[in-house]
Design a protein around this nucleic acid. Structure first.
Length: 466
RNA sequence: GGCCCCAUCGUCUAAUGGUUAGGACAACGCUCUUUCAAGGCGUAAAUACGGGUUCGAUUCCCGUUGGGGCCGCCA
């Protein structure tokens, strides 16, 4: 397909764990950049480590991306490209830019220990580099002495001393390439214009530049985005709690909320007018419109999940009742939840953080747990009076035909009493009796969910507490 | 330890030499209200420190301190 320009970007996840929010953000930045410039967004599964790569994780990556709406234009798997790597490996070997190293892992570990003790960077300058053996692993013959300069689009020039890198590993053998090599080959083969990846890769970049030079590749533009951090400011990892996108999906976070949340972690659109409330809720299209690499932050960002909760509530509130029902219904799993007509679900729309909260709420309404009489008397209510009110409510509601019993008919029937006693004096005891809680959905919404017999039963229970 | 990166409210950030240093989340308060939530209004809260440059530094330079990342036959 002909593109109007040659912007091509990718994410290169390894299927060794579930797709997590850090990867989601890197994916989003790449995707936004591609969409903004009419370029291509590519997903490349880096599964060269056969031991640790699992099909299950690859499925999770593709499903999570699809859920977020970050659908790739092209998709590759490194395990299917062995011949390509082999070709380049043979070329490097033939040109003596790479060599076989027969040192054992134990030998290398000892060397590394020695170097660390001597206060040096552990790096292996191999004495096999000109030995012309054909056993062991394949290493890059690093003869570079001039500083390697990364022209990073966010950080400017970053300089590395290549003598500190040593003869780094390229492949276990001709059939088993390693990260720095396979990654470099693919970025060229797939014609990547930019490499937008996490800051934790900065120290890999000089190695990849070296490989690229040896192979005569043109370099992509490097862009290292800051890391997502846990609350202790260290790189986000499992010990910081839920990370996998699938977990948030399962709890009923909306993909648009998730996207909006991660977009604003380390990136921000240009300032609005001074003094004006600055908007933070942006649609996908708005993000594409506003996005630019230059506005990505340099410092790492702590992923504070309270903000995600807020975004989710915002997006939930914006849903129409019909959309809300469609989205919430799959999260209704309990028998209690299934008894409630779907049309009533929007009652919870402005009260929940995640879609899975609806089921929880319904269960706690239907399974009334015991409560203190104080709940009925909150706000200096007089016991005898509340008791009288409940009796009166009981009387009025009992007379409603069970067939016609609903929030609407209950409201009509109680209207005279409400007018006489005041809204709070009637509705608080009613609501508290039906929910057993100080905080709940409204009294007539409760009436809608509960059968007449149950409403009557709960009112009697309440009265007997007083 | 070596190399590299970074530094504005608790958190995410705005302000690219001139602002009463702005907004959002969270917190707290008030208001609305039958409660809670939602909504509205408001309060508290930051330029890490020290030197320069400049008429003037959040902003530019240097240093210090602090934090982080990487140092694999993982990616």
């Amino acid at each position: 397909m002909n593109k109007t320009n040659n912007i091509r970007v990718r994410i290169a996840p390894s299927p060794t764990g579930f797709f997590h929010i850090g990867t989601a953000r890197t994916a989003l930045f790449n995707w936004l950049f591609a969409r903004k410039h009419g370029g291509a967004f590519i997903v490349r599964i880096e599964d060269t480590d056969r031991e640790r790569s699992k099909a299950e994780f690859e499925v999770d990556i593709t499903e999570s991306l699809e859920w977020l709406g970050l659908v790739p234009d092209e998709f590759y798997r490194q395990s299917e490209r062995t011949e390509i790597y082999k070709k380049y490996l043979e070329k490097l070997l033939k040109e003596r830019k790479a060599f076989y190293c027969a040192h054992s892992i134990e030998e290398l570990e000892q060397e590394s220990e020695r170097q660390k003790k001597a206060g040096q960077v552990p790096c292996h300058l191999c004495d096999d580099r000109d030995a012309r053996i054909t056993e062991g692993i394949i290493r890059f013959k690093n003869n570079e002495t001039d500083a390697i300069i990364i022209g990073d689009l966010i950080r400017g020039e970053i300089r590395f001393d290549p003598r500190l890198i040593g003869d780094f590993a390229l492949a276990r053998n001709l059939e088993e390439p390693l990260y720095n090599f396979a990654n470099t080959v693919d970025d060229r083969e797939m014609d990547m214009s930019h490499v937008i990846r996490g800051e934790d890769h900065i120290s890999n970049t000089p190695k990849q530049i070296l490989v690229g030079r040896a192979l005569g590749f043109t370099q992509p533009r490097w862009t290292h985005v800051p890391l997502l951090l846990g609350s202790d400011r260290s790189k986000l990892s499992k010990r910081h709690g839920a990370l996998a996108v699938r977990e948030y999906r399962a709890q009923g976070y909306l993909p648009e909320a998730m996207l909006n949340f991660v977009a604003l972690l380390g990136w921000h659109p240009p300032a609005g007018k001074r003094g004006e409330r600055e908007r933070e809720v942006f649609s996908r299209d708005e993000l594409i419109e506003l996005f630019s690499l230059e506005r990505i932050q340099k410092a790492g960002a702590i992923a504070e999940m309270q903000k995600l909760d807020w975004f989710n509530r915002e997006y939930l509130k914006k849903l129409s009742d019909k959309e809300f029902i469609d989205r919430a219904a799959p999260f209704i799993s309990s028998p209690e939840g299934k008894r409630v007509p779907k049309e009533l679900l929007p009652i919870f729309k402005k009260r929940i953080t995640r879609l899975s909260d609806v089921d929880q709420e319904i269960r706690s309404i239907i399974n009334l747990s015991d409560y203190e009489a104080g709940v009925l008397l909150k706000g200096d209510r007089e016991g005898a009076h509340v008791c009288m009110i409940i009796d009166t409510i009981l009387n009025i509601l009992s007379r409603i035909d069970p067939q016609k019993f609903s929030g609407v008919t209950a409201r009509e029937a109680l209207d005279p009493l409400v007018k006489k006693e005041g809204i709070g004096s009637v509705l608080w005891p009613l609501r508290a009796s039906l929910s057993g809680k100080e905080v709940s959905i409204g009294p007539f919404e409760l009436v809608d969910i509960l059968e007449k017999d149950e409403v009557v039963r709960r009112l009697i229970v309440a009265r007997n507490k007083l």
